[in-house]
């Protein structure tokens, strides 16, 4: 699904990612853990092709294609989804308009027919019910006045609608209490499948109790410092990131 080789990337001339190698197979869920400033969010933005995040060396291959050929919207349409750590508020853009525009843009790209208002609402209802998203939320501007939990549920709603092959979930647990976390994790787990891979980025092990990964990697100073199974997360929870932070300069 995704093959990252020797990836270096900088932001405003500062190198953040310093040689990442990572291979994610179809249907696999990988977790990336790491201390603050290790480059976790940078990796997620590089994967989405955000302006200002420059790949200086190495390669990312997604479903057999060189990702550098695609801009942000093309990556999304090709099935890459980024769940934001801080979902963006868009006052004046109604949630329904946003979701319909996005879904139809992706369908257009995939050569599928666009959905009309009725077809779209029918499809939307299935997901909003499962994620407990109210009509009031849909009427409001995107993420405007949403609680932390509502924002994250809205991210999962977008993922459910767009049906990506590969989802990056950046600190999906941040700002959530345990009940909200459970709802979001259930939403994510419902979307797991043999054709869909995920990269779950988190600082804390807590999230991985609910979204159980196949593999865990530790990112420190812009490199994968260790890889292992889900038990690695428990070990980190116990020992902290001390061994990965101590003795080296901050990234």
């Amino acid at each position: 699904m995704l093959e990252i080789k020797g990836l270096h990337a900088d932001v405003d001339g500062t190198e953040i990612l310093k040689g990442i190698d990572l291979s994610i197979g179809e249907g696999e869920v990988h977790a990336i853990m790491g201390p603050n400033g290790s480059g976790k969010s940078t990796l997620s933005y590089v994967l989405s092709g955000r302006d200002g995040y420059n790949v200086t060396a190495g390669s990312i291959t997604y479903r057999g294609r060189d990702l550098s050929e695609l801009n942000t919207e093309e990556r999304a349409a090709e099935g890459i989804f980024l769940g934001f750590q801080y979902p963006v508020e868009l006052p004046g853009v109604s949630s329904t308009t946003f979701l319909k525009t996005a879904l139809n843009a992706v369908r257009r790209h995939r050569g599928e027919e666009e959905l009309d208002a009725v077809q779209f609402m029918k499809r939307l209802r299935v997901h909003t019910k499962a994620l407990n998203i109210s009509d009031d939320m849909l009427r409001r501007g995107v993420n405007v006045g949403f609680s932390g939990g509502e924002k994250k549920r809205n991210e999962i709603l977008q993922m459910a609608l767009l049906e990506p092959y590969f989802a990056v979930l950046d600190e999906t647990d941040s700002g959530l209490d345990i009940d909200a976390l459970k709802v979001v994790a259930e939403g994510v787990n419902a979307l797991r499948g043999p054709k869909r891979s995920m990269l779950v980025i988190t600082h804390y092990q807590r999230l991985l109790d609910y979204i159980v990964p196949d593999y865990v990697h530790v990112l420190a100073h812009g490199r994968i410092a260790r890889s292992g199974g889900k038990e690695l997360a428990l070990e980190l929870e116990e020992k902290g990131y001390g061994e990965f932070v101590a003795g080296t300069e901050a990234a």
Partner: peptide, 19 residues
């Protein structure tokens, strides 16, 4: 906001128009 919209597959010109 523009990046958020584009990350959902909305082409840049259309995203700018929405904003």
């Amino acid at each position: 906001g523009l990046f958020y919209l584009r990350s959902r597959g909305i082409p840049e010109a259309e995203a700018r128009q929405l904003l």
